[in-house]
Amino acid sequence: MADIVHRRVVVAGEVQGVFFRDTCRQEAMARGVAGWVRNLLDGTVEAVFEGAPERVEEMLTWTHHGPSAASVDEVSVEGGRPEGLTGFQVRPTPRS
Protein backbone atom coordinates (compact mmCIF):
# COMPACT_ATOMS: atom_id res chain seq x y z
CA MET A 1 0.00 0.00 0.00
CA ALA A 2 2.95 2.32 -0.53
CA ASP A 3 1.10 4.20 -3.27
CA ILE A 4 -2.03 4.66 -1.13
CA VAL A 5 -2.57 7.59 1.22
CA HIS A 6 -5.11 8.01 4.03
CA ARG A 7 -6.59 11.37 5.01
CA ARG A 8 -9.27 12.26 7.55
CA VAL A 9 -11.03 15.58 7.08
CA VAL A 10 -13.53 17.57 9.10
CA VAL A 11 -15.43 20.23 7.17
CA ALA A 12 -17.13 23.13 8.96
CA GLY A 13 -19.64 25.64 7.67
CA GLU A 14 -23.04 25.17 6.10
CA VAL A 15 -22.35 21.58 5.16
CA GLN A 16 -25.32 19.61 6.48
CA GLY A 17 -28.62 19.51 4.64
CA VAL A 18 -26.98 20.55 1.35
CA PHE A 19 -26.24 17.10 -0.13
CA PHE A 20 -22.60 17.29 0.96
CA ARG A 21 -22.37 13.60 1.91
CA ASP A 22 -24.00 12.17 -1.20
CA THR A 23 -22.10 14.49 -3.52
CA CYS A 24 -18.87 13.60 -1.70
CA ARG A 25 -19.64 9.90 -2.27
CA GLN A 26 -20.26 10.51 -5.98
CA GLU A 27 -17.06 12.57 -6.36
CA ALA A 28 -14.97 9.96 -4.53
CA MET A 29 -16.39 7.07 -6.55
CA ALA A 30 -15.75 8.93 -9.81
CA ARG A 31 -12.09 9.28 -8.78
CA GLY A 32 -11.65 5.74 -7.48
CA VAL A 33 -11.15 6.96 -3.90
CA ALA A 34 -12.26 4.67 -1.08
CA GLY A 35 -13.56 5.70 2.33
CA TRP A 36 -16.62 7.13 3.99
CA VAL A 37 -18.39 10.35 4.98
CA ARG A 38 -20.81 11.23 7.80
CA ASN A 39 -22.43 14.14 9.57
CA LEU A 40 -21.27 14.87 13.10
CA LEU A 41 -23.48 16.13 15.90
CA ASP A 42 -21.69 19.51 16.02
CA GLY A 43 -22.83 20.39 12.49
CA THR A 44 -19.60 19.44 10.74
CA VAL A 45 -18.99 16.67 8.20
CA GLU A 46 -16.24 14.08 8.69
CA ALA A 47 -14.76 12.06 5.84
CA VAL A 48 -11.95 9.56 5.32
CA PHE A 49 -10.32 9.20 1.93
CA GLU A 50 -7.93 6.46 0.80
CA GLY A 51 -6.38 6.10 -2.60
CA ALA A 52 -3.73 7.32 -4.99
CA PRO A 53 -2.14 10.53 -3.66
CA GLU A 54 -3.26 12.68 -6.60
CA ARG A 55 -6.86 11.41 -6.37
CA VAL A 56 -7.05 11.96 -2.62
CA GLU A 57 -5.63 15.46 -3.13
CA GLU A 58 -8.44 16.13 -5.63
CA MET A 59 -10.96 15.12 -2.96
CA LEU A 60 -9.29 17.36 -0.39
CA THR A 61 -9.53 20.25 -2.84
CA TRP A 62 -13.20 19.42 -3.46
CA THR A 63 -14.00 19.54 0.28
CA HIS A 64 -12.96 23.21 0.37
CA HIS A 65 -16.09 24.11 -1.61
CA GLY A 66 -18.32 21.01 -1.66
CA PRO A 67 -21.58 20.97 -3.61
CA SER A 68 -23.06 24.23 -4.89
CA ALA A 69 -25.45 24.67 -1.93
CA ALA A 70 -22.66 24.33 0.66
CA SER A 71 -20.70 27.13 2.27
CA VAL A 72 -17.40 25.82 3.63
CA ASP A 73 -15.70 27.86 6.36
CA GLU A 74 -12.89 25.53 7.40
CA VAL A 75 -11.34 22.17 6.50
CA SER A 76 -9.00 20.33 8.85
CA VAL A 77 -6.92 17.46 7.48
CA GLU A 78 -5.05 14.68 9.31
CA GLY A 79 -2.88 11.98 7.81
CA GLY A 80 -2.98 8.37 8.89
CA ARG A 81 -2.08 4.82 7.97
CA PRO A 82 -4.06 3.26 5.13
CA GLU A 83 -6.66 0.79 6.39
CA GLY A 84 -7.28 -0.99 3.09
CA LEU A 85 -10.73 0.55 2.67
CA THR A 86 -12.75 -0.39 -0.40
CA GLY A 87 -15.76 1.36 -1.86
CA PHE A 88 -17.17 4.61 -0.51
CA GLN A 89 -20.11 4.86 1.84
CA VAL A 90 -22.24 7.40 3.63
CA ARG A 91 -22.21 6.44 7.30
CA PRO A 92 -24.82 7.35 9.90
CA THR A 93 -24.25 10.19 12.35
CA PRO A 94 -22.63 8.81 15.51
CA ARG A 95 -24.70 8.87 18.68
CA SER A 96 -23.51 11.15 21.47
Rank of each mutant, 00 (worst) to 15 (best):
M1L: 14
A2E: 13
D3W: 12
D3S: 12
I4W: 10
I4H: 06
I4C: 13
I4T: 15
V5S: 13
V5G: 11
V5D: 12
H6C: 09
H6A: 03
R7G: 01
R7A: 04
R7M: 06
R8E: 06
R8T: 06
V10W: 00
V11I: 14
A12D: 15
G13A: 04
G13R: 03
E14M: 07
E14V: 11
E14Q: 09
V15N: 10
V15Y: 11
Q16T: 10
G17N: 10
G17W: 02
G17T: 06
V18M: 07
F19G: 01
F20K: 08
F20A: 10
F20W: 04
F20T: 07
R21I: 01
D22L: 01
D22A: 03
C24L: 04
C24G: 08
C24R: 01
R25E: 14
R25W: 11
R25H: 13
R25M: 15
Q26Y: 00
Q26K: 09
Q26L: 08
M29I: 11
A30W: 14
A30S: 15
R31L: 15
R31N: 11
G32A: 09
V33I: 06
A34Y: 02
G35S: 12
G35F: 10
W36D: 12
W36N: 13
W36V: 15
V37A: 03
V37H: 03
R38V: 01
L40S: 02
L40Q: 08
L40K: 05
L40R: 06
L41G: 07
L41R: 13
D42K: 05
D42T: 03
D42H: 04
D42M: 08
D42L: 10
G43F: 07
T44S: 15
V45C: 06
V45M: 03
V45P: 04
V45A: 05
E46R: 11
E46Q: 13
A47H: 06
A47W: 01
V48E: 14
F49E: 08
F49N: 10
E50C: 12
E50P: 11
G51V: 15
G51M: 15
A52C: 09
A52G: 08
P53Q: 14
P53C: 15
P53A: 15
E54K: 00
E54Y: 00
V56G: 05
V56W: 10
E57S: 14
E57G: 04
E58P: 02
M59A: 06
L60V: 11
L60P: 12
T61C: 07
W62S: 05
W62H: 07
W62F: 02
H64R: 14
H64E: 11
H65W: 12
H65A: 04
G66C: 11
G66Y: 09
G66K: 07
G66V: 10
P67L: 00
P67A: 03
P67F: 00
S68H: 15
S68V: 14
A69F: 09
A70S: 15
A70L: 05
S71Y: 07
V72E: 10
E74C: 03
E74Y: 00
E74W: 00
E74T: 03
E74M: 02
V75R: 02
V77M: 12
V77F: 10
G79V: 06
G79A: 12
G80A: 12
G80F: 08
G80V: 05
P82D: 13
E83Y: 11
G84M: 12
G87C: 04
Q89A: 14
V90W: 02
V90F: 01
P92G: 14
T93K: 00
T93R: 00
P94W: 03
P94E: 07
R95C: 03
S96G: 05
